[in-house]
Design a binder for these strands. Structure first.
Lengths: 239, 239
DNA sequence: CGGCACCTTGAAACCGATCAAAGGGTGTGG
DNA sequence: CCACACCCTTTGATCGGTTTCAAGGTGCCG
């Protein structure tokens, strides 16, 4: 049991510089360890939670890769985000005590379960933690605004370029390559996130390959010319 | 001075059922009164804050109407939201201690200034307030996801119909008509929010008028057939 | 009353969607 | 271990909705 509790401790987690405990003191982190007492495994293709599920906890991605998506009555759906290691899932549930999206694992995954009432209690004790929770929520809001910009005013090539740059930047922060990545999602899921059809996603990939900007082999993508991608996102930087 | 502090008190504000103090006890509201010690007037067309401004406070709209928008290096911009009475502006600033969007008054407005560090301090004292702040942030996230759905997978008519229904619903919650409204923003601003050009917004309004769904005279809009608008948003509800 | 900002409407161009078909990969069961 | 099935992806051709370009109209404010 003691061994087990060490196993799930933030204080001994190699993600602590990326994840919720970022910036907490030793003391604070030990307290946090008691809040985050359980982990949960989610098999590829299954849900961490579904729309309408009662909200109880936030989840920190320990390993694996998720998408969150909302589905309308008439069957359309929209991927609202992709979450990787160290990122927090479930903030949507706070407002109405139930989740307003589905969180689906795109590969076998493990999350740390953080009962939200306990997190609130501890937040009242430590202003560092409190402020950190606020920052995480604010970060999500700012990210969403960026996606709105992308969906509202970018063309297909710009969207995909922005998407790739964002992915690779987040992966790089986790110690992976700046230029190579494996996509964990299908063309259709990318399309849903970016507001385009899977055929358009595929065509745009092909276009980038023709232009020598990237290399693609199925889910593997290699960025050959980062600057070119940046220029695609921001066409007239020099005006 | 005492008279003045009463004037800006949440406890005597007629918006307290809509705004931040919603659900707080008398005692808690009195404490909150000390946090929200100032109001600020913003003239039509001017900014409450701009991108890059240092973040210090959240703002509750006391009167008037705002838009928030982000602008890219190459001059494109995206309206990320419209805020009316009782709604909170400034959550974007928490994550990086500076604002990541502009907040512009679309008519002469007044806001209550809530220094965020004081709000955090008080939040640590009252879990009702703490949870309420979390809900406000979560609500913004859920709203943003809805906009992503709209931008990512709806056609022009659906977007505008959803927009009108949303506006009128929020106005109704504030005691205004369920069927009539005055738009505080231009066609271009509507278009920016909905990811379409101002001409398309105008054409879509005209289409709705032709179909007898609404009546439009400049900024004045009267909804003649709410059900029809709902059907436009959700085309095949009966399948 | 004149200027200006905003709005409407038309015609043509274009981008991405749709429809269609065929070509890989991968995983499971024989 | 191989084969088949299924899913994912690519590519082509056509279609359609939105944008773009353009011109004219309306209302408001100084």
């Amino acid at each position: 049991m003691d061994a087990h509790s060490i196993k799930v401790a933030c204080s001994s987690c190699n993600l602590r510089e990326l994840c919720l405990p970022m910036g907490l003191s030793h003391d604070e982190m030990n307290k946090l360890d008691h809040v985050i007492s359980t982990r949960k495994r989610i098999k590829r293709g299954t849900a961490l939670f579904n729309t309408g599920d009662r909200f109880t906890s936030l989840y920190a991605v320990r390993s694996g890769f998720f998408k969150t998506c909302i589905t309308t009555a008439d069957g359309r759906d929209q991927v609202t985000g992709f979450q990787m290691t160290g990122e927090i899932i479930g903030l949507d549930g706070i407002v109405s005590d139930q989740h307003s999206c589905d969180a689906i694992a795109l590969e076998d995954a493990e999350v740390c379960v953080m009962p939200f009432d306990q997190l609130e209690t501890l937040s009242r004790e430590f202003n560092t933690l409190q402020h950190h929770v606020h920052k995480i929520m604010s970060r999500e809001i700012v990210r969403d605004h960026g996606v709105m910009l992308l969906l509202g005013s970018m063309r297909a090539e710009e969207r995909l370029a922005a998407f790739l740059l964002n992915l690779v930047q987040r992966l790089h922060a986790r110690g992976f390559s700046q230029s190579e990545l494996i996509l964990r999602m299908t063309r259709e899921e990318i399309g849903s996130y970016l507001g385009m059809k899977l055929e358009t996603v595929s065509r745009t990939f092909s276009k980038f390959v023709e232009d020598g900007v990237i290399e693609v082999k199925q889910r593997y993508v290699k960025i050959l010319d980062t600057e070119a991608l940046k220029r695609i996102v921001n066409p007239q930087v020099c005006n």
